[in-house]
């Protein structure tokens, strides 16, 4: 018998919700341990850095346009830091590079 789509979805969404929910409900106190605190403080930086590179250079039509988006994003983020401008700047760099190459 074929499993219904919505049953699949229920299992996937339920599992996903538990992963996201459990830490927030179970860890209700401020963690005192300096090493665990440090670990959790570093997590966002490491995980976003790992997710961005090298994925960004393979996300476009060619490595070169991806690299252009990465470098422009990096420079804009360094000097400006505005989410919207950095995102659009990276997109424009990719678009222009693909148009030129």
């Amino acid at each position: 018998m074929e499993t219904n789509f919505y049953v699949y979805l229920l299992v996937a969404a339920g599992t996903l919700y538990l992963i996201r929910m459990l830490p927030l409900t179970l860890i209700r106190k401020g963690i005192k341990n300096k090493y665990i605190r440090s670990f959790l403080y570093y997590v966002p930086y490491v995980t976003l850095a790992v997710m961005t590179f090298p994925a960004i250079i393979y996300a476009t039509g060619s490595v070169w346009s991806g690299l252009a988006g990465f470098v422009v994003g990096l420079v804009l983020a360094f000097f400006d830091g505005n989410l919207f401008r950095v995102a659009i700047g990276a997109c424009l760099a990719v678009y222009l590079t693909e148009w030129l190459v």
Partner: peptide
Amino acid sequence: YGMFLAIII
């Protein structure tokens, strides 16, 4: 990805 850079850089 650009947004991620704007967050961490």
